Amino acid sequence: MSKLITSIDEKTKSFIEAQQMFFVATAAADGKINLSPKGTDSFRIISPTQVAWLNLTGSGNETAAHILANNRMTIMMCAFDGKPNIMRIYGSAKAIYEQDEEWATYGPLFKANTGSRQIFLVDVQHIQHSCGMAVPLYDFVEHRDLLDIYHDKKGRQKVKAYWEEKNMTSLDGLPTGQKL
């Protein structure tokens, strides 16, 4: 049986804090749907009705493009150990860039990272918990640090040059709103 709630309660907060990864889904009105796994220590609960996550530089910037076109976002976490549970946060999101005033509020919530691209601030509309009884059990070993090493080796200026080359439009040609 699924359970639908409108804010992060203590049980949900505990579940979120125990997860090592999450998945983010977005879509514009047309074109490709984007679904991305996220790891590292990049997710924060701001309040019972708001969460934020730090997005690191990657090969594409689909999430940012989709949020500009349609601000819907779904975040999913599922239990790979312990009691089965799949949790989805349905909400509306906006991107915050280091040049934005809000970065001073939300940026310090995350460890400094050479590859930081934007923070997505998500207003929670609904949270759904469902059984997850078919989700396999996995043992968490550790977070990979390869992306951090890659970004640190490039340096911030080369990371920004990469944005200009690869992160200004989506796969469907939509603008991402990336600020340089």
Rank of each mutant, 00 (worst) to 15 (best):
A28D: 06
I67G: 04
G39P: 01
A28G: 05
F22Y: 10
F22Q: 02
A161Q: 14
E102R: 07
D81F: 08
D172S: 11
T74P: 00
G58F: 08
T74C: 02
F120G: 07
Y97F: 15
N70Q: 15
S59E: 14
K32R: 11
F23V: 15
K166F: 00
P108C: 06
L146S: 12
S42I: 04
M76F: 02
I16S: 04
N70E: 15
S7M: 11
N55V: 14
F140W: 07
I46S: 03
K32M: 12
D145M: 10
T57G: 01
G82Y: 07
G115Q: 10
D139L: 09
G173I: 01
Q118I: 07
G115V: 09
N61V: 06
L35P: 01
G173E: 03
V124K: 05
T114F: 06
F120N: 11
T26V: 07
T49M: 03
I96E: 03
L4A: 06
F110R: 05
G31M: 07
I8Q: 00
A104N: 07
K94S: 10
W53P: 01
M73K: 04
I67S: 01
L54Y: 02
Q118L: 12
W103F: 00
E101V: 10
Q125L: 14
Q128N: 15
Y162E: 05
N113W: 11
I127F: 05
H151F: 11
A64K: 02
R72D: 09
A64F: 02
R44H: 00
N34Q: 03
S14G: 15
D41F: 01
L171V: 14
G115E: 08
L121A: 00
T49V: 10
Y90K: 11
E101D: 14
L147N: 09
I149G: 11
A18S: 15
V122N: 03
G82H: 08
G91L: 03
Q99R: 06
Y97M: 11
Y106M: 08
M21H: 06
T6N: 14
E10I: 13
A25T: 12
K166A: 01
I16W: 03
A112N: 07
L56V: 03
P37H: 03
M21I: 07
Q20R: 15
E62N: 12
G60K: 12
L147S: 12
S130F: 12
Q20S: 15
P37L: 07
N70G: 13
E101N: 11
G107R: 00
F43W: 05
L4Y: 05
V141I: 15
N71M: 08
L146E: 13
Y90M: 10
A29Q: 15
A104T: 09
L171A: 14
R117Y: 06
H151K: 02
P84K: 08
V124L: 07
A79L: 08
Y106Q: 05
A161Y: 08
A69I: 09
S116D: 13
P84I: 12
L137P: 01
M1N: 13
I16L: 06
V24G: 05
S92A: 11
W103K: 07
S130N: 13
M87H: 09
L4W: 04
Q19E: 12
N55P: 11
N34A: 05
S42R: 05
G91N: 02
Q157I: 14
N34D: 08
E142G: 09
T176S: 01
V24I: 10
I8R: 00
